[in-house]
Design a protein around this nucleic acid. Sequence first.
DNA 1: CATGAATGAGGCTTCATTCAT
DNA 2: CATGAATGAAGCCTCATTCAT
Lengths: 186, 186, 186, 186
Amino acid sequence: MKQLGVKERIVETASELFYNQGYNQTGINQIIAEAGVAKASMYQHFRSKEDIAVAYLKQRHINWMGSLQDFVSTKTTNKEKLIASFDYLHGWLTEVSFRGCGWQNIITDLPSDHDKIKNQAVLHKNDVRAWVHKLLKEDGEYSDKQAEQVGDEVIILLEGAIILSQIQKNDWPITAAKGAAVRLLT
Amino acid sequence: MKQLGVKERIVETASELFYNQGYNQTGINQIIAEAGVAKASMYQHFRSKEDIAVAYLKQRHINWMGSLQDFVSTKTTNKEKLIASFDYLHGWLTEVSFRGCGWQNIITDLPSDHDKIKNQAVLHKNDVRAWVHKLLKEDGEYSDKQAEQVGDEVIILLEGAIILSQIQKNDWPITAAKGAAVRLLT
Amino acid sequence: MKQLGVKERIVETASELFYNQGYNQTGINQIIAEAGVAKASMYQHFRSKEDIAVAYLKQRHINWMGSLQDFVSTKTTNKEKLIASFDYLHGWLTEVSFRGCGWQNIITDLPSDHDKIKNQAVLHKNDVRAWVHKLLKEDGEYSDKQAEQVGDEVIILLEGAIILSQIQKNDWPITAAKGAAVRLLT
Amino acid sequence: MKQLGVKERIVETASELFYNQGYNQTGINQIIAEAGVAKASMYQHFRSKEDIAVAYLKQRHINWMGSLQDFVSTKTTNKEKLIASFDYLHGWLTEVSFRGCGWQNIITDLPSDHDKIKNQAVLHKNDVRAWVHKLLKEDGEYSDKQAEQVGDEVIILLEGAIILSQIQKNDWPITAAKGAAVRLLT
DNA sequence: CATGAATGAGGCTTCATTCAT
DNA sequence: CATGAATGAAGCCTCATTCAT
């Protein structure tokens, strides 16, 4: 990790900590200690802790979308890709012990003035939504309006499966969500 | 509010604050100041801040389930009751400016040792789930196994609608979820 | 313990706690909880925590002096009794894991205005001193002045052995003190 | 005092307070107020109150041993040095109004988990003991074993004289201890 | 870019005591 | 005599941030 630049090291360390311990549970001191970075150096790259979280979420967005799209890329039809998304959820959430969604986790208990972070969450969710809409529109099976409608339903299932599996520390919500998605897409 | 007992005042005040500002964003000092109670009095009734949150969630569970069941009580069939639940969500979440679910919000960024709070969330979600399962079983339209399966799907839609409407500060997820529920229940 | 009166129960419980946990480490709440006594009842019998400590030390004085004198009563000469006192120390301090002297422990880190407690310590130490002086005077081997002088030396050895064995959590100071006493008394 | 660094100011202030008021009687707030330091600055230098006490005891050890050895350095034989140690005690304890031994005072009523402080006390007492043993061995008058035995006796007299003079607020224990030491060393 | 000192504001918790029932 | 509510003062500690070197 030492060959990375300072900024990268901070984001990488903070990402690990923010996701696994939570935003409020992670202090600036732990970040700089584990990143091996001086405090002033950190504040040269980031105006505030909130800004680090923004960088974390931006990077996470790229990684997460990439992983998801990789995972479903073997499927031929777009519908199959959407269904496979639930398998992606399953593998991911199991691996992280149902730690939940980075964006959900960080917005639910945040000071009211942390808008930059909230914006990142909106951007992320919008991108996922757009991706789902696009997939369904490309299939040509639905009208654009129908595609958006069904897509939204699938997205809600995704979100619900994530948060519920986090609370229950169990994978049944993911399985159930997949079942619902299959039926809604048929 | 002065005619209430100290304990009630604390829970009431804390409930307001925990739900609207978040658990981590609400300090003990603010709670006692707004409740008009001495700090040590508070600790006579509650061993810790976490215990206040537990009391808050317990009370909230009673209120929330009651309101929901009241709301849907006018419907004749159980399926209709379930569908109407999404209308309940709509009214509630709009009123609270899409502040989301008290249980979701409090567990997503919590110190790792706050198990009592996490347990409350699990209890709440289990109760909701049991209620949904019961409704569908009573209808007699599904086998017990099917009722549980479909019920879980509906629950996931509820959860997804709540969290997504919170992030988006918009009611479309609730509308979309209702649409999906209607189709899944037919 | 339930057949005892309230006052006795408080003193008995507090004695256990004060001696084993320390005065500052023992709270009024723990005392009343373990004694099974209401707070107001306690404050009816004792004006303050300090007063409980005074009662504790008074009772301890009686018990401690009694045990010591019992222990050495089998010895025929008074010199032998004094020497045997070190054996008493050894048995006692080993049994209590070198928890030290109740009086020493309670005065060394006390608010400056706790004079009642300090007085108890002085009374106790004076009584022990008087007892030692008396023993040596009775023997008739020393002049009164010599008896007091040698007695004081023995007492200092006793005190030193107690505090040092407490710090070292070891019995060597008691053994060494006995050795010195034997030589000083010959 | 302002020209000292923050850390030194904290230790110096805390030393004064810990020794004169006691460890439990001295709060962090008083320390920082009298040292003229912000609370967080203090915690930058010391992880906890216990750590401040450790620093205090370490510094005190150096000062105390130094003063003692200075005091006795005019004596030619080691035996004389040991005897003179009681004169050192006398001067010191009189000056501090029989406030007693910093190490004795701090361990006798300490929360059970304060091991770092307890260790400091053991280290200090061991150093004193080693010094006494060394002096007697160097004299060549005793075998090594005898030197250690007699040395331990002297040490116990020192400890006993300190604690007893503290309780009695009087110097007779020091005088008596010196008398005993003289006889034991002859 | 590193080091870490310094800070103000606030975090949660506990104390011995009093008082009303 | 029991119950336990209520309290003011104080306890120890941590936060994100700024600044001087």
